[in-house]
Design a protein around this nucleic acid. Structure first.
Lengths: 202, 202
DNA sequence: CGCAATTTTGCGTGCCACGCACTTTCTGTA
DNA sequence: TACAGAAAGTGCGTGGCACGCAAAATTGCG
């Protein structure tokens, strides 16, 4: 039964909303199928069917299965950037970053899909690679915010990109370790503790 | 003209040597073609032909084009591990890591292929992802050495993997920035400076 | 030399990404 | 409300990729 996603009553035009709905439906369908039957047994055709859309349409949204699975986690990037922008300007950068990541993690409520994605990334290096590919884009965004904050140049200086990438990497490695360890302790604590152990001087 | 690689007079059996030679020949062929005509115009068939081998054989060595290009840079991992093991045990970890990376970078002589791979990674996120996928494997190896050094557990503790991954990430981001900035200043200095700005406490 | 182990190769299969043209659905305006 | 244009969805065809399988070629050793 092809269950197209119908939700998100808010939004601009119907067109925009439907488009976004289809995109997230495809992403979630891919994730769900991967969790149910294992990544190897997920074909593009299945994902499309699960989202109630033609196979060809799938590739109008994503250019690979891997992208579909990991893309749904990309919203976090913008979230982190916003949270960082909201921190007081005189706060030390790394501290601000810590708050931003923790806040983005808990908002709006902790997303179980994040754990699923991490699990998949742990067992399929191809998916891990795709995840990091996304992180690179997110890091670029975050780097501009860091540059703004620290009065550096996101293009010419090493610092913004380095800080952004290291922050994402710290978060990812910590999160994966947390998942691998059972995931019973509070995540936020683990992330805070890990971030506190890392320094990146300007 | 299919130019199979004939070199590396040292080694165990002839079989082993030939196999390794084919592998590096394929990797270098992929890299050369990518540099010459652009990554998009490189087919598996071309790589195989360039290495003087059948297309089917290519997939006996690599399971994707991306892997072929980036694999030739994986020897560095073992190198870094060796260099780290050679550092005095009482030396602070991060300092030892810095030395290890710098040493591995300059040995035996700076490899131009490294720059080519970095350039490709900069313009093709797919290749960047593959590069990081390899780094994950290298980081795992390095993590065991770090665990040995610091008396921690590479499986249960976060620290070894975090330190290893952050070291690789710092190196990669710095190297890419160095390449993007023209690559005229000494690389070793850039890496040393970047590493010195990063801290990872146990 | 001749045999066994290993590697290379050819072939067939299933899957995937995407260009192109056509159909369907939506939106703003008369 | 009707309609024309825009935007999204779809079907089809093409080129390419990864890999299982079994036959052929190559290598190492007694």
């Amino acid at each position: 039964m092809g269950t197209a996603a119908r939700k998100e009553p808010a939004g601009q035009g119907l067109r925009e909303r439907k488009k976004k709905a289809t995109r997230t439906a495809l992403g979630l369908a891919a994730l769900r199928l991967a969790a149910e039957r294992g990544w190897a047994a997920v074909r593009v055709e299945d994902i499309a069917a699960e989202a109630g859309v033609s196979p060809r349409t799938f590739n109008n949204y994503f250019s690979s299965k891997e992208e579909a699975v990991m893309a749904s986690g990309a919203d976090r990037a913008e979230r982190v950037r916003e949270e960082l922008a909201a921190r007081p300007p005189q706060e030390p950068l790394w501290e601000a970053l810590t708050h931003a990541f923790v806040a983005a993690l808990a908002e709006p409520s902790f997303d179980p899909a994040t754990v699923l994605r991490a699990r998949l990334a742990l067992t399929h290096s191809q998916l891990a690679a795709e995840q990091v590919r996304f992180e690179a884009g997110m890091a670029a965004i975050l780097a501009t915010e860091i540059a703004r904050r620290t009065g550096t140049d996101a293009e010419r200086d090493l610092y913004p990109r380095l800080a952004a990438t290291l922050a994402f990497t710290t978060f990812r490695v910590t999160f994966e370790h947390w998942v691998r360890s059972g995931g019973d302790t509070p995540v936020a604590d683990a992330v805070r503790r890990a971030m506190r152990r890392v320094r990146v001087d300007p």
